[in-house]
Design a protein around this nucleic acid. Structure first.
Lengths: 345, 345
DNA sequence: GATACGATTTGGATCGTTACAAAAATCGAG
DNA sequence: CTCGATTTTTGTAACGATCCAAATCGTATC
């Protein structure tokens, strides 16, 4: 256990060739004679040599890692995203450097500073809430390609940076959900949950408002309810929906967690979601399909988003000078039991 | 963007000192005069230098990373575990190398081989199902400390290896759940879900059987039902419970996913969990608290387990020669609405 | 003003690998 | 056999940091 790590020098010595030759064999170069290659490979197995990629990266001024910084790993949506990222990076022989920030910008700063010292080829960043674009630039610098996922931090000067952006089609998703409810006959539709200051929430609100305006329905200010994007916070805000005169008969929720929380809250208020109140979510987390009632929501396929993010950052690594691109991933409505025609009190 | 990476040589040149001095400043050595330190620090900021930890690690023959290999990242339980690991590693200035295997031993082999080339200081491994201990040893070799989490692969020669092991107290957990049901008056109690070949499932079955025997209740073979440990598979196996004469009135489930699946399946069979059939889970995933009815289960605090795993692997890195240790983490019963007294048909 | 001693600074070798240019080995043709 | 053209192989200088021994700098002491 104490023996030093086996190096190519040990292999070279062990079978009477130079380190350069061993290196060629390791990289499968066609420059080596078959006989020597066989000999070297045998010695490698005999001594249990393992390649030191860090040394190779240093010499070649390359990197074989990509950093993945996630704001909330305990959210199944992001966990699934991370799995997708790792899947694609792994298949391209990159390794994933993980950092989770728990939605703390301070921790995000530390995590990024630490990861950058490992010289990742690129960074996939799902920013913590309230992140600031300028500040992120200052921490990361201009040398590492970045793909920002999901949220758009304010003050990010996209025009002049080379950062890429990947997000969901929040507007269209919320519009689809709203149109679905309108088609069922609802007119008093709330937009429930999320922090309006976040880009994803405001985009979803825009989609919702767009559909309402298009249908000629005026939005009552009391129908816009904020909450932290968690189940618990959402459940606690339920009462706010019924505080006004023209109480809504349906709600477009910020995401599935909020929708599930709202359904719990409704039960506590004696209303049955899917029977006398309609609810939609956003994300289609696994739980949505099996909740009671099953949740009508917008599928976003986080694992596919993860794969996509990995593809894009690797593409960017190969073409660092290209302008930053913005990509909006499609979402599609999955209608389930949580939506029903309106029932008025 | 094309400019080469700034190195300590650039800093040294930029303020007329040697690279050795810059290195001392970077490491906060007390050997440097205050004036030069100030000068060097200013130059570092001016040029936007970032430390290259890979180069330092190479020279020092150290490592500042720990590999985390997870069998199923999309399972919230493991995602939470990963978040705990990363939290502790980050606070100790280590970086997490992530690898997810999706329960495939083949992918696990690739992932481990790739991660080892990055010379992690240690590996935290939650093995894919059907992993083999000997094979894992062959892939990883004897030089990297390993902490195995959650599952115990067969053929692992713990006595002679230095590998550590961290698991949940599966036996006690299942015993607590079973005793809880017995105390409610149940006698016909099933053990539902999981693959009996896995170590965690067989341990839980032992705990269940122990409690039953202790209470003087004989177990009907028809009460032992296997299923893949997913919600869907569990829901589909529900019928198997009611195929026998003496149908059970309660079930101890392999884990929460299985329990939630069973509750769905029960509803489809016209039985109401928590009213006329009692169900317990294992893990206490966030969803358990908010399902309908809320699930009685065993809390294992996966984030704390993650922190614990990180602590232990770092301790092992400092003392590589010590014997491998086995540690069993406590679990505790959380009684909720899914358990009720028995109702016979 | 020479000496000594602690406080700072520094050249140069080194970690494990690869790039490059040049050397050595091999081979077929004349 | 010799010669030129291929194949193979190899010495050596990097990559960016750190270690170590030795050099340099003050400045207090006699």
């Amino acid at each position: 256990m104490t023996r030093h790590r086996v190096t190519i020098a040990d292999i070279a010595r062990g079978c009477g060739v130079s380190t350069a030759t061993v290196s060629l064999v390791l990289r499968g170069s066609p420059l080596t004679a078959t006989a020597t290659r066989k000999k070297v490979e045998a010695e490698i197995r005999r001594q249990g040599y393992v390649y030191n990629r860090a040394a190779a990266n240093l010499r070649q001024r390359t990197s074989s890692s990509v950093a993945l910084v996630i704001n909330d790993l305990s959210n199944p949506y992001f966990a699934e995203f991370a799995a997708g990222v790792d899947e694609t990076l792994g298949s391209r022989h990159y390794v994933t450097l993980l950092g989770s920030t728990n939605e703390s910008t301070e921790r995000q700063r530390q995590v990024l500073a630490s990861l950058i010292e490992h010289a990742p080829a690129g960074i996939i960043l799902s920013p913590a809430e309230y992140s600031d674009g300028e500040r992120l630039h200052a921490i990361i610098g201009a040398h590492t390609p970045v793909l920002v996922f999901n949220r758009e931090p304010p003050h990010a000067d996209w025009a002049h940076s080379h950062w890429d952006y990947l997000a969901l089609d929040n507007r269209r998703g919320a519009r689809l959900a709203t149109e679905h409810l309108l088609a069922l006959g609802h007119r008093r539709i709330a937009f429930f949950g999320g922090h309006a200051s976040s880009s994803s929430c405001s985009e979803r609100r825009e989609g919702y408002a767009g559909a309402m305006v298009h249908a000629g329905v005026e939005i009552d200010a009391a129908w816009l309810v904020e909450s932290a994007p968690t189940r618990l916070a959402a459940a606690q805000e339920t009462a706010a929906l019924f505080a006004c005169d023209r109480a809504p008969t349906a709600a477009v929720c910020y995401n599935d967690a909020v929708a599930l929380g709202l359904m719990l809250g409704l039960a506590a208020h004696g209303r049955r979601p899917g029977r006398d109140f309609a609810v939609t979510g956003f994300d289609d987390i696994p739980e949505a399909a099996v909740s009671m009632p099953p949740l009508t929501t917008l599928a976003t396929d986080p694992r596919a988003r993860g794969r996509q993010a990995a593809e894009r950052i690797l593409a960017r690594v190969l073409a660092p000078e290209a302008d930053g691109t913005r990509c909006v991933a499609p979402v599609h409505l999955v209608a389930r039991g949580s939506t029903c025609p309106p029932v008025y009190d």
